[in-house]
Simulated scan of single mutants.
Amino acid sequence: MLPDLADLLADAHVVALPMRVRFRGITTREALVLRGPAGWTEFSPFVEYDDTEAAAWLRAAIDFGWTDHDAAADSVPVNATVPAIAPDAVADLLGRYPGCTTAKVKVAEPGTTLDDDVARVAEVRRVMGPSAAVRVDANGFWSVDRATAALERLAPYDLQYAEQPCATVPELADLRSRTAGLGVRIAADESVRRASDPLAVARAGAADVLVVKAQPLGGITAARSLVAEAGLPCVVSSALDTSVGLGMGAFLAAAAMSPGYAAGLGTAAMFGTDVTTEPLLPVDGRVPVRRTAVSRDLLERNAASPERTAWWRARLERVHAVLAGA
């Protein structure tokens, strides 16, 4: 059931959270948090997404804010996230993720080289030791030829998997075939969350692992159904959410994530502040599965400018109309 727009806007707040490091090309994360009958929820599609794509994010916000979800566990393991930083900054950054034994390392960032990526991954492996799980995430920036060459150089660092090394499902299938002897599994992210058919990558045999995110897939209920139908191991990750959205992801991870993997839900460590006095920061390598209690004081202190607040409220109104029309 779609709540009235007035109900969505009744206790809605737009925040702009400064980030400790540049990630995904931004240094400030904007989000709209709102309160539903079940608790606080979040609507934060990236600003470049159109209203049709953002509709899934609003469905997720409604699913979490208007539905009581049971916690299938008290906490879930999470990975450290390493942006495209210099090797000499790696150790300090990993210190923000106490107890984490898995790291996801960004590679293929525009303006960087493969040598940069190899040096960064090598330093993560050195700092974390041989028993840690190390993943890389290329966000689809490599061609099949470049991805093949990159994974040949990165494979000696014992990668758990390579996330979205190429942009399309056929490219992922080709790469998976070419690199079968390297022992590096292929994970699909954008080919799931930004696809018109999220199950196409599984049917094509183009990935070994699915990376799923609660907001882009329409919420906990929809994402759980997709994971069950896909029949592949699943890792739950964040979409650079506030601790409210991370709570949504934690509920999904507790219910749907495959054993032996860490969720990408430790990203509150990337923010200089949050919307709560109890952010979902990693402790002993895990985050709790709970709803976030939002601080009114932090909502006020981190409020976006009046112009950006108006932009987000207008966006919510348009996306609500998209859902109403559907």
Rank of each mutant, 00 (worst) to 15 (best):
W40N: 02
T41E: 07
T41V: 10
T41R: 03
E42A: 01
E42W: 02
F43C: 02
S44E: 01
S44G: 04
S44W: 01
P45Q: 11
P45A: 10
P45Y: 05
F46L: 08
D50M: 08
E53W: 09
A54W: 01
A54N: 04
A56R: 07
R59V: 08
A60L: 01
A61S: 08
I62F: 01
I62V: 13
F64P: 01
W66R: 08
W66D: 03
T67Q: 08
T67H: 14
T67L: 09
D70G: 05
A71C: 06
A72C: 11
A73G: 07
D74M: 04
V78P: 03
V78I: 13
N79C: 13
N79E: 11
N79H: 15
P83D: 00
A84T: 04
A84K: 06
A86K: 12
A86S: 12
P87F: 10
D88C: 13
V90L: 06
V90P: 04
L94H: 09
G95F: 14
G95Y: 15
R96E: 14
Y97C: 05
Y97L: 10
Y97R: 06
P98G: 15
G99I: 14
C100Y: 06
T101R: 15
T102R: 05
T102I: 11
A103P: 11
K104E: 12
V105H: 05
V105S: 06
A108M: 07
E109S: 01
E109G: 04
P110G: 05
G111E: 13
T113C: 12
L114W: 10
D116W: 10
D117V: 02
D117A: 00
V118T: 09
V118E: 00
A119G: 07
R120V: 11
V121R: 00
A122W: 13
E123Y: 10
R125I: 13
R125D: 13
R125L: 14
G129E: 15
A132Y: 13
A133P: 02
A133H: 08
R135W: 11
R135N: 06
D137I: 07
D137E: 08
A138P: 05
N139D: 02
W142G: 02
V144G: 03
D145E: 15
R146E: 14
R146F: 00
R146C: 07
A147V: 07
A149G: 12
L151C: 10
L151T: 13
L151F: 11
E152A: 14
E152K: 12
A155E: 13
D158L: 13
L159P: 02
Q160F: 07
Q160P: 02
Y161H: 10
A162L: 14
A162H: 07
Q164K: 05
Q164S: 03
P165T: 12
C166P: 04
C166L: 08
C166A: 10
C166H: 08
A167P: 02
A167V: 00
T168I: 00
V169P: 01
L172E: 00
D174C: 09
